[in-house]
Every structure is written in structure tokens, then in C-alpha cells.
């Protein structure tokens, strides 16, 4: 158990709102090894960002609360640490890259100062050394003229450059793990390509572990080693990127893949959307949360949450179709259900 760098075990997070208690994350488990990139995929509201915030200890309490499970980082349970202890890990051991670089940066502070803020706090360094470090970080993330840029303010940077600064901040203390929450969603495709290349290069050079949160399966295929597909607060499928793309096992993953148009599609085909919308997490269904939108739903699906089936190589999916008592999938497809 201790060999993983990060291990999330049955994590549960609730938020209290005026409308009741939202069960945003309802028992999520996965792990991240050293030097590995793990992508968490899912639609808005599936709990992927909340999971990331829970790892960082950034769940605002109140209204949010980790009501169950563990976050183990380097063999140490960190979800219940007091704030003073957490501050030592956050930033220096685990770095975070946020979605929108405009709101993640302080507009009234020079970027150099922002990059080394955590570094200065954790290590006693002189002003000279800190400045040198900031320049070095800017160079690392590919910003031209770092000696001049270090004294500029965020508004003097373009969107892509700002995201590079945010990455520099996350890496300044040489963390072992970086959590990137939709790091390219706010960027244009040509800039996204630059940032993905940068993340990939840094990850290999620095032997970083990366958790990347995204809704873009294209990004997952390009950058991740393993992926975790979330739906309505639970993990429905997980496995290596190659396995999941080649052999998706959960109807939700099938649906996600089918609903994407592809640049290399030949004949124009009609898209196959997933009908309906995700369930309400104030009062989540007791069975499989995807049952209401699933073409293959059976009676059992509404009544009981399916257990995860292991397909080998860490590829798992939680679906009743893989139960030994379920009808065979190819027979269902032959009988007219929408297939893979």
C-alpha cells in the first residue's frame, strides 16, 4: 500500500447548501505512482475538481467537509492534518495549476515575487537567491527574456504566458506531485499545444507525478498514462489510457467516446449523444447513477450500486453488465441496444 506516491481511498465529500446536502464525491479511490500522469475525466458536476481540492486540503469548510475516506501522500494520511502541517506540504510537496491563469495570479504583485512566494516561505533564502530562482523558473517554463519578465505584472503577459507563470509557481519548490485542474481549458488550441508539450517535457525531466483534470478526451490521450472516468461523484472506470480507449468497459465511457466528432472521420456520421442529464446529487440514486441514461440498464442497476470488475492491468469498471449473471453484451447489441 505504501509504494504509491498518492493514494485516495474511498473519499467522500459533502457540501451543505440551502437546498440540502450535496454529495459531491461519493467514495472515490485511485492512486498515482511516481513519474506518472493520471487524468481524471468527467463532465461538470461529476466531482473531479472537488477531488483535486480534497487532495490539496482546499475544500472550504464550511460548507464543504470530507466525510469519509483517506488521502495518503507518501504513506502519510493528509486529509485530517491541521492547517499548519498542511501548509508545509501544500506548495512544497504538492503543487497546483489552476484553470484560469488570470484569476490564479495576483494582479498587484510582480510575477517573480509570486513565483518564489512559497519558496521563500519554506526555505530561508536571500532576496538575491530568490530572484535568481524566479528567473530560473521562468526560463524552465519557456518564457523569453526572463531577466526582464521577472519584474513585470501579470497583465503584461498573454494568456498562454500567464499559464506558464502559474506552472512556474507550482514547480518553484520542486514538488513531487502537481495537480493541474483544467490547465488548458481557457486557452486556444495552438497555445494549448504549447502548454501540453511543456507539461510533458517537465514531467519527464523532473520525474514529476501529475494529476490532470480535464473533460477533453483528446488531452487525455496525448498526455496521460492512466485515466479515471468519474460520473456523479463516483469512479465508473479506470485503467491505462491504452486499455480504456481501445476497450472501454463502462456504458458511460462508450457514450463519451461516441459523442465526440473526430477530425479524421470520413463519411459524415450523425453524432450519438448521451440522452438526458446527470442525476441530482442532493439525493443520488441508490443504484448505478448512470442507469437513467444507460441503454443497457437492467432492473438491478436501479437498486444496487455495481462493484468494480477487474479486467487485468489495473483496468476496472463498475457496471452490472460485467456480472456473471448479466446477459452477454454482444447479445444485447444484437437485440438492438445502442452498442459500443
Amino acid at each position: 500500500m505504501t509504494k504509491h506516491l498518492l493514494e485516495i481511498d474511498d473519499l467522500k465529500v459533502n457540501f451543505k447548501t440551502y437546498g440540502g446536502e450535496v454529495q459531491a464525491v461519493r467514495g472515490v479511490s485511485f492512486h498515482v505512482d511516481k513519474g506518472e500522469t493520471v487524468a481524471i475525466v468527467g463532465e461538470s458536476g461529476c466531482g473531479k475538481s472537488v477531488t483535486a481540492q480534497a487532495i490539496m486540503g482546499l475544500i472550504p469548510n464550511p460548507p464543504g467537509k470530507i466525510v469519509g475516506g483517506k488521502v495518503v501522500f507518501e504513506g502519510r494520511e493528509i486529509s485530517q492534518l491541521p492547517k499548519s502541517e498542511l501548509l508545509k506540504i501544500r506548495g512544497s510537496e504538492i503543487g497546483m495549476v489552476f484553470q484560469d491563469p488570470m484569476t490564479a495570479l495576483n494582479p498587484t504583485m510582480k510575477v517573480g515575487a509570486q513565483i518564489v512566494e512559497g519558496f521563500v516561505r519554506s526555505q530561508k533564502v536571500t532576496r538575491e537567491e530568490a530572484r535568481k530562482r524566479a528567473i530560473e523558473m521562468l526560463r524552465l517554463v519557456g518564457i523569453p527574456d526572463p531577466e526582464d519578465r521577472v519584474d513585470q505584472y501579470p497583465h503584461q503577459f498573454s494568456g498562454g504566458m500567464r499559464q506558464r507563470v502559474v506552472i512556474a509557481i507550482a514547480l518553484a519548490c520542486q514538488p513531487k506531485l502537481v495537480i493541474a485542474d483544467e490547465p488548458t481549458t481557457a486557452l486556444d488550441v495552438t497555445i494549448q499545444a504549447q502548454i501540453l508539450d511543456l507539461l510533458h517535457r517537465l514531467q519527464e525531466e523532473q520525474e514529476l507525478s501529475v494529476v490532470i483534470i480535464t473533460h477533453d478526451l483528446g488531452v487525455v490521450a496525448e498526455i496521460a498514462h492512466r485515466m479515471v472516468v468519474m460520473y456523479a461523484g463516483i469512479v465508473v472506470e479506470t485503467g491505462s489510457v491504452e486499455d480504456v480507449f481501445a476497450n472501454p468497459r463502462h456504458p458511460y465511457t462508450w457514450g463519451l467516446m461516441r459523442s465526440l466528432p473526430r477530425l479524421d472521420e470520413g463519411e459524415k456520421q450523425r453524432l450519438v449523444p448521451i440522452d438526458g442529464t446527470p442525476p441530482d446529487l442532493f439525493n443520488p440514486p441508490k443504484g448505478c447513477p448512470f442507469a437513467a441514461r444507460c441503454d443497457f440498464a437492467m432492473e438491478i442497476c436501479d437498486q444496487q450500486m455495481p462493484a468494480a470488475t477487474d479486467f487485468g492491468g489495473n483496468h476496472r469498471a463498475a457496471c452490472w453488465l460485467h456480472d456473471s449473471r448479466a446477459p452477454r453484451i454482444d447479445e444485447l447489441v444484437a437485440a438492438g441496444r445502442q452498442g459500443v
Binding site: 499545444a193 483528446g218 488531452v219 490521450a221 489510457v241 491504452e242
Partner: peptide, 8 residues
């Protein structure tokens, strides 16, 4: 630049 959803 468009990421292709196919790891192969």
C-alpha cells in the same frame, strides 16, 4: 494542434 482522442 487539436488533440486526437486516440492514444495509439
Amino acid at each position: 494542434s487539436v488533440p486526437v482522442p486516440d492514444p495509439t
